[in-house]
């Protein structure tokens, strides 16, 4: 019973997504105009996609402070390379891939930096221990999600928060759709395990 209901719900969502496809075509025409020399269209592109990009960065890095800096880098890269855009895939796919790659670059840099400064931020360390007395449910869940490995966390959030399709996620993080499917499932299972101690709070 529940399954069929759910299906209806998702079908509705699919219908809602439909106008977006037209928008994507619109992206193409904007890009064409940009290539032809009308640079003002770039602003429209930024306006349209900046929030998604910022969110993906936030999801991936789990850090407010970095979002704007990296988002700027993403759009600068887009600006520089837009002339070479080949209209083979959707603009968003390309954009998200750039975003995810920028995040990966940042994480890689941090990893190298951590090698040279082995003393970890103690506050960050403390952040992993959850004190349920002072937290509401969303906070508990957020902490749990933060505990997930990046590999699982990013596809899960891209799906559940950003509403990307498996196909889009696969292209953004550059892996197979099957892998995305598996990772999202594993992320959910992991989350469930992490939240087991807080079942009471969650029920309430």
């Amino acid at each position: 019973m529940g399954a069929s209901k759910n299906m209806k719900f998702t079908k509705k969502k699919k219908e809602l997504q439909h106008p977006q496809i037209l928008n994507l075509d619109d992206d193409f025409s904007l890009i064409k105009r940009f290539i032809e020399g009308d640079e003002s269209t770039f602003n429209t592109l930024v306006q349209r996609h900046k929030e998604k990009v910022r969110n993906i960065i936030y999801i991936t890095l789990n850090n407010h402070d970095l979002v704007d800096d990296i988002a700027q880098e993403v759009f600068l890269t887009v600006y520089k390379n837009l002339n070479n855009f080949r209209f083979e895939s959707q603009f968003t796919t390309w954009l998200y891939r750039i975003t995810v790659n920028k995040c990966k670059d940042y994480l890689r840099k941090m990893k190298i930096r951590n090698i040279f400064s082995p003393i970890k931020d103690s506050e960050e360390e403390l952040g992993y221990t959850i004190h349920p007395e002072n937290m509401d449910i969303s906070e508990i869940v957020q902490k749990a999600i933060a505990k997930l490995p990046e590999k699982l966390r990013v596809p899960l959030l891209l799906k559940d928060i950003e509403g990307l399709s498996y196909q889009e996620i696969a292209e953004s993080v550059q892996c197979e759709i099957g892998t995305v499917k598996s990772r999202i499932f594993r992320a959910r299972e992991g989350l469930r395990e992490l939240l087991k101690p807080y079942e009471q709070e969650l029920r309430a």
Partner: peptide, 15 residues
């Protein structure tokens, strides 16, 4: 799974 998904959707706010 549905519950986990709902929790995720409801607790994670956009930036």
């Amino acid at each position: 799974l549905k519950k986990v998904k709902q929790l995720t959707v409801s607790s994670v706010k956009s930036v």
